[in-house]
Design a protein around this nucleic acid. Structure first.
Lengths: 209, 209
DNA sequence: CATAAGCGGACGTAAGTCGTCCGATTCGTC
DNA sequence: GACGAATCGGACGACTTACGTCCGCTTATG
């Protein structure tokens, strides 16, 4: 299992190939999800499969690395939204961004939906950070009275997946930006005052197995 | 290509196997989508693959037959909702039912999302009937002032897919009935008065290629 | 220019799928 | 109850796709 640390004294072409593989993987899982073949990734990166395995040891390791990068970007977005002066605007922006990120990368959507297999410690840490950020965004908005009372921060997370598969339905075409209409409708639905009481248990944080 | 008409004088065991295959297919595509293997279907039905091909000629033909049945049920539901005395209640009930049908059968969700390949004439006819029913449900609700002005019947269809993939997000578990919360929030979002103007073009009916 | 690091992609292996075919079985009639 | 035709089950051949390894060739670097 060769170099797993990109900063070491590897040859320049090796470093370049590593970067190209990461870029290609990001694009591949965005459009086709986590089930891309190693050959597809390597071809898109302009290298052979051997190079992929030489640089990352495993296809899994490469995917994990890329997904972690996406999570880090989400954490950054959350911080930006927390600094917005208006609480509701911050929450609404984050929901739109998270929904967009889910749509932009099918692979990311597959990972955030995973519940069974234990994620890597790094992913678990980012997940906890994101949960915390969303909880804060939600409480801030609730404190200003902008959020309906029976919506929890867990609902917010769940709702940010609602625009994932809303491009077509029964011959209707939502258009490339149609998902934003869905998110806008959802945001109107979670604004105070809530009209239809939300029934059933609120979403729960998954217990570690 | 043997009997494609179930009513003819086929042997009793043949008729029974045909029914079992349809039931098994319905369950298989519900949980695993349209990519079930013929072997899986046949095994679940308690028959051999040969029987599947003998009864339906093609795996496609079997799937089409089952999907058509699901569409017919949706048409029935739409009629029931159109007969509800309260226009808003009828619309809300249909949205919840359609969202539930999508969730209950992954295969159905895959078909209603299809936009490229031309559906069979039978499916196209049901699709048109459903579009018409939703348009009527929507206009009825709008006439009573219950629906916000900028929501179209196309939006209604698109929104009925929003609860498809909302079971988990970043470690949060929506629970088995959690999708209903999402639909409820959406319904509140499309009720009059709309607050955030819906931007961008409304969803369009797909033109035949 | 010498040499070690790195590269590409053919390859062996293992799944999984489709639709066919034929010997064995069962239904339905006489 | 027995016979023939209809039906059945599942082994089978032919593909396709994917993973990760291995080795002869290439290229960066001192």
């Amino acid at each position: 299992m060769p170099d797993l640390d990109p900063a070491q004294g590897v040859r320049a072409d090796a470093r370049r190939n590593r970067r190209q593989l990461i870029v290609a993987t990001r694009e591949a899982i965005a459009s086709r999800g986590l089930d891309v073949s190693a050959l597809d990734i390597a071809t898109a990166a302009g290298v052979g499969v051997g190079t992929l395995y030489r640089r990352f040891g495993t296809k899994e390791a490469l995917l994990d690395s890329v997904v972690l990068g996406l999570y880090d970007e989400l954490c950054d977005t959350a911080q930006v939204c927390l600094e917005r002066p208006d609480a509701w605007d911050g929450l609404a922006e984050f929901v739109m961004e998270l929904a967009g990120a889910h749509r932009d990368s099918r692979g990311l959507a597959e990972v955030t939906a995973a519940c069974e297999r234990p994620p890597s410690p790094e992913l678990a840490q980012r997940t906890a950070a994101l949960q915390d950020a969303v909880a804060r965004l939600t409480e801030r908005a609730r404190a200003t009275g902008a959020l309906r009372a029976d919506v929890t921060w867990q609902d917010i997370l769940i709702c940010s997946r609602a625009a994932l598969d809303t491009d077509h339905c029964l011959g209707v075409d939502a258009g490339p930006e149609g998902w934003r209409r869905v998110v806008t409708i959802l945001l109107d639905g979670i604004r105070a005052p809530g009209r239809t009481p939300l029934e059933g248990p609120a979403p729960q944080v998954h217990e570690a197995a």
